[in-house]
Amino acid sequence: MSDGSHAIRFEAEVVRFDGPGGWHGVFLPPDAASEARFFGRANTLGAITVRAQIGVTKIKTSLFPDKRRDSFLLPLKAELRGRENIEEGDPITVTLLVDT
């Protein structure tokens, strides 16, 4: 892309995590995780700031490293899930724009 970003598109299943608030997210599949690892600058926690599009909704968020899965987790806030009618177990398509 000419605007200095790189697009990564993937499909993943929404998972729900136990704990306060029961938050939701998706893990990047291996190919997408491999690509994301080389783009953007990780902060001290290893998170990478990205722009994402899910359905018609565009958000600015972060990918968080998951060493057990050798992947990244993309959290999905309740507002986004409500707007896009996303529930646990749904397959969703995500387009990430990672600044290069």
Rank of each mutant, 00 (worst) to 15 (best):
M1V: 10
M1R: 04
M1P: 13
S2D: 08
D3W: 02
G4K: 06
S5I: 02
H6D: 00
A7P: 12
A7C: 07
I8K: 03
R9A: 11
F10Q: 04
E11F: 06
A12M: 05
A12V: 05
E13D: 14
E13H: 13
E13N: 14
V15Y: 10
V15T: 13
R16D: 00
F17Y: 15
F17W: 15
F17A: 13
G19L: 07
G19V: 08
G19C: 09
G21E: 10
G21K: 11
G22Q: 15
G22K: 15
W23I: 13
W23H: 12
W23C: 08
H24Q: 12
P29C: 11
P29R: 09
P30C: 10
D31H: 13
A32Y: 07
A33R: 07
A33C: 12
A33Q: 08
E35A: 15
R37L: 12
R37F: 11
F38N: 14
G40H: 03
G40W: 01
A42Q: 13
A42K: 15
N43H: 07
N43G: 09
T44H: 14
L45E: 11
G46F: 05
A47W: 00
A47M: 11
T49Y: 00
V50R: 04
V50C: 05
V50A: 04
V50T: 04
A52H: 05
A52L: 05
A52M: 09
G55A: 06
T57P: 02
K58W: 02
K58H: 10
I59A: 12
I59M: 11
K60G: 06
T61E: 04
T61C: 11
S62K: 03
L63R: 03
L63C: 06
F64D: 01
P65A: 03
D66N: 15
R69D: 02
R69T: 05
S71R: 01
F72S: 13
F72N: 13
L73T: 04
P75Y: 01
A78F: 02
A78L: 06
E79K: 14
E79N: 11
E79I: 02
E79H: 08
L80C: 08
L80T: 09
R81L: 04
R83W: 07
R83Q: 15
N85K: 13
I86P: 13
I86G: 14
I86W: 08
E88R: 08
E88D: 07
G89N: 11
I92K: 12
V94A: 05
T95I: 10
L96C: 04
L97N: 03
V98F: 04
V98D: 03
D99C: 00
T100L: 10
T100Y: 03
